[in-house]
Amino acid sequence: MQNEFLPLFYTFHFYLFGLIALVGAIVFVTRKSPVAAALWLVVVMFALAALYVMLDAQFVGMMQILVYAGAIMVVFLFVVMLLNLGHPSDLNDMRGKLGRLLAGLVGLALVAELMALTRSEVTMKLVVPPVENAAAGTAGIIGPIAGPLFKEYLLAFELTSVLLLVAIIGAVVLAKKRSN
């Protein structure tokens, strides 16, 4: 490790986001209201994305947020609302002052941390020196994913698209309106 801050910084955030993910997952499976459960799942997804970023897999982290927290959760909520399973009163999951206070404090702490990090010189020390990043080369972060995907795993990649096509056709065949 290059400096004394990195291990502490890393460990602290690993446990922080790990804890958020675990608590979020437990709360997610114990909620009665589907809407609240879905929103808790979003919390889990964000915490996991943070863990991915800490593993230097920034691309996977972003995809986690865009695809899972974004697209898939929106579809979930859509289905829930179309089926009218959720009631507005259930959305009010954080009952009581304590819960709100706690949520506010965690949020404030994260914002404060961001503010502090952008202003202090600690940030510069935390940047991993380019030598360690040499493996990524000129391909950047996405290169190590894109390269194998279109070289070694080309066939698997193409077959996956056919597989998804079959799944879509199947869903449409089962769900479409009958003509008679």
Partner: peptide
């Protein structure tokens, strides 16, 4: 000849047959 392709083949077959 690769377990990944095996998996994709199984799924392509199975999903169509489920429907």
């Amino acid at each position: 000849r690769d377990l990944m392709i095996v998996f994709l083949g199984v799924e392509m077959m199975s999903i169509a047959v489920y429907v």
